[in-house]
């Protein structure tokens, strides 16, 4: 069953096309991520799916409800956590939660089991004003408020942007637990390494959807053989590797570079000899499996 069905949606602001002819179907109970950098169109897409914005063209349904006609019902079954903190700063933690529960005609008690895991960490601060909470705590409160009416679909817009790796991992652990409650989760992120936590992902750039699939399938369909280059002088190695005539691309990836030959049958030995001649005595070249980030970067490698 499709929880969210998007067909050919387009949205422009003046002469900027924020979302360009996007079609997606997201299954019920799926943990689905829109992955892409700033300006990819993720937020605009979320605003349309949560009925806060109408598309110029195209249609979408959320749990079978039409975004144009049934917007009232969509709002009652959706939970939305925007990228910018948007709770009431002057209300306490408890008051914010109470407010959102009341607006959705429910009570904290009724759905407390759903947020219990997250809310226990907030309970010591329940009387504190939301505006006085730390960033991590604000984020957890916002998630509780988005969940308190037990939505069928949860929209989370960049919940982990600017968050350190440890807190990011914690947040994804929380999402995995919410998923077990049979809530469809659609989350956006600029971090490619978060793809592995999702059932399926859509890679987005400049308003378009480049690819939609499981992270494994996206990596499996990478069209090149990928090699890793390691050496002592990494930056110089990068510059020299790019000068090699048979180089298709070479990108820095942490402690190594990811390298692709123009022709698949090119030999790593020849590249090693060339790099040694350039003074990289210690160069180490090995085969490597691509990551989602490799795949993302490969889309549009030609026009960059």
């Amino acid at each position: 069953m499709n929880s969210v069905q998007i067909s050919h949606i387009t949205k422009s602001y003046g002469n900027v096309t924020a979302v360009r002819d996007i079609s997606l179907s997201i299954n019920s109970g799926e943990l689905f991520a829109l992955i892409g950098p700033d300006g990819a169109g993720k937020t605009t897409l979320f605003r349309m799916l949560t009925t806060l914005l109408l598309p110029d063209k195209g249609d979408a349904t959320v749990c079978g409800l039409d975004m144009r006609k049934d917007w009232r019902q969509i709002r009652t079954i959706s939970g939305y956590m925007p990228g910018r903190f948007s709770l009431y700063q002057d209300l306490s933690v408890e008051e914010n939660l109470e407010f959102f529960a009341t607006v959705f005609k429910t009570t904290i008690q009724e759905n407390y089991d759903l947020i219990h895991d997250i809310y226990v960490q907030l309970e010591p601060f329940s009387k504190r004003r939301a505006g006085k909470l730390s960033g991590g705590m604000k984020q957890k409160l916002a998630l509780c408020c988005a969940l308190i009416h037990r939505p069928r679909v949860l929209f989370l817009d960049e919940p982990t942007t600017g968050v350190d790796p440890v807190s990011r991992k914690e947040f994804w652990d929380i999402l995995s637990r919410i998923k077990e409650q049979n809530i469809t989760i659609i989350v956006s992120t600029p971090y490619m390494d978060e793809a592995s936590r999702c059932d399926r992902i859509a890679l987005m750039r400049n308003g378009s959807c480049l690819r939609t699939d499981t992270p494994e399938q996206i990596c499996a369909s990478f069209p090149h053989k990928l090699w890793s280059l390691k050496g002592k002088e990494l930056y110089q190695l990068l510059l020299d590797a790019r000068e090699y005539p048979q180089t298709y691309s070479c990108h820095a990836f942490g402690d190594c570079h990811h390298f692709i030959f123009k022709e698949e049958n090119d030999k790593a030995d020849d590249l090693a000899a060339y790099l040694r001649m350039k003074g990289h005595e210690d160069v180490l070249i090995e085969r490597l499996e691509p990551s989602v980030e490799d795949c993302f970067m490969d889309f549009g490698e030609d026009d960059q």
Binding site: D38, P190, E293
Partner: peptide, 9 residues
């Protein structure tokens, strides 16, 4: 933060 992978590099 939030910059695309190619531009980040």
């Amino acid at each position: 933060g939030g910059v695309d992978p190619v531009t980040r590099r």
